[in-house]
Amino acid sequence: MPWKGGTLRQFFRNSGHLIRLAAVLIAGLCVFLLIRTALIPKAFGKYGHYSPGALDVIRQRPVSYAGQDTCVMCHDGEAKERASGRHAHVACEACHGPQAAHANADDPSAHKPRLPDVANLCRRCHEKDAAKPAHFPQVVTAEHSGGAACNSCHQPHNPHL
């Protein structure tokens, strides 16, 4: 031992630079901890390891699809017609697109939904495809209608002939 026989004072004198270094490191650590405490987001960890505020931010996103219940509140006729047919479980917006802007508008008629593009719309569901469940109604449209629009025979809201 280098300091054997020497006094404790000598030892401290000879390791003075290390004590200074330790002071620098501890000061650095304190600054780090102070900054850290100041910057941690408020309420972080309330429910788990995250900011609970994120939940509210995500919930504030506006809705685009108003939902079936909203549509049928006004559109009685279409709703009744649809409810009695094979499309009873197809939501209005599944074909008509997102209508929250229409439903929430002061004047809904100013946000009139565009009529669906029937040629593509019906085929997406009903074009014959081996991967579709066998019980699902499907046709090879080219053979079935020879190019005529689906709604020239079928009523989309209640698609019996």
């Binding site: 939940l55 995500i58 919930r59 504030q60 996103r61 506006p62 809705v63 685009s64 699809y65 939902g67 079936q68 499309h87 479980h89 197809v90 939501a91 917006e93 599944a94 997102p98 569901c125």
Partner: peptide, 17 residues
């Protein structure tokens, strides 16, 4: 999450025919 927390279903479920 913005829909289901106000009583609506998801957009995908709403529109699944």
């Amino acid at each position: 999450y913005h829909r289901i927390t106000q009583g609506l279903t998801t957009a995908c479920c709403e529109n699944c025919p």
